[in-house]
Simulated scan of single mutants.
Amino acid sequence: MPAVPAYPSARTEMLVDPRFLPLADRFFSMYRHPHNGGGALVAYVHGEKVLDVWAGYADRERRWNGDTVALSFSTGKGVASTVTHRLAERGIVDYDAPVAAYWPEFAAAGKESITIRDLLTHRTGLHKVRGLVPGRLGLLDYDTVIDALAAAAPDPRRQRGPGYHAVTYGWLVAETVSRATGKPFTQVVREEIAEPLGVDEFWYQVPADQKPRIAKLFPHINPGGLDWRFTSSVLAHMGPLRGLAEAAMPDGFDELVRNPAVHDAVMPGWNGVFSARSLARMYAAIANGGVIDGTRFLKPETLEQMGAVQTRDRDYVLGIKLAWRLGYHPPILASRVQPTRGLGHYGVGGSGAYADPETGLALAFVTNRLGNAVTALGDLRLARLGAEAQEIVRS
Rank of each mutant, 00 (worst) to 15 (best):
A3D: 08
P8L: 10
P18A: 04
F28V: 07
T75C: 07
G78H: 02
A80L: 03
V83P: 02
E89I: 13
A97Q: 05
A109W: 05
K111A: 07
I116G: 11
T121N: 08
T121A: 04
R123E: 08
T124R: 09
G125K: 10
L140P: 04
L149V: 03
A150F: 04
P162R: 01
H165D: 06
A166F: 01
A166H: 01
V167R: 04
T186M: 06
Q187M: 12
E191G: 02
D200R: 09
Y204P: 01
P207H: 01
A208Y: 00
A215Y: 04
N222V: 08
N222W: 00
P223V: 00
L226K: 14
W228V: 07
S233E: 15
M238V: 15
M238S: 08
L244P: 10
M249T: 01
D251F: 00
A265R: 12
M267T: 05
W270F: 13
V273M: 05
A276I: 12
S278Q: 07
A284F: 12
V291H: 05
D293N: 14
K299Q: 15
P300F: 05
M306K: 12
R325Q: 07
I332F: 11
L333M: 15
P339K: 10
R341P: 02
A355T: 05
E358F: 04
T359L: 08
V366D: 03
N368I: 00
V374D: 11
A376C: 06
L385V: 03
V393D: 02
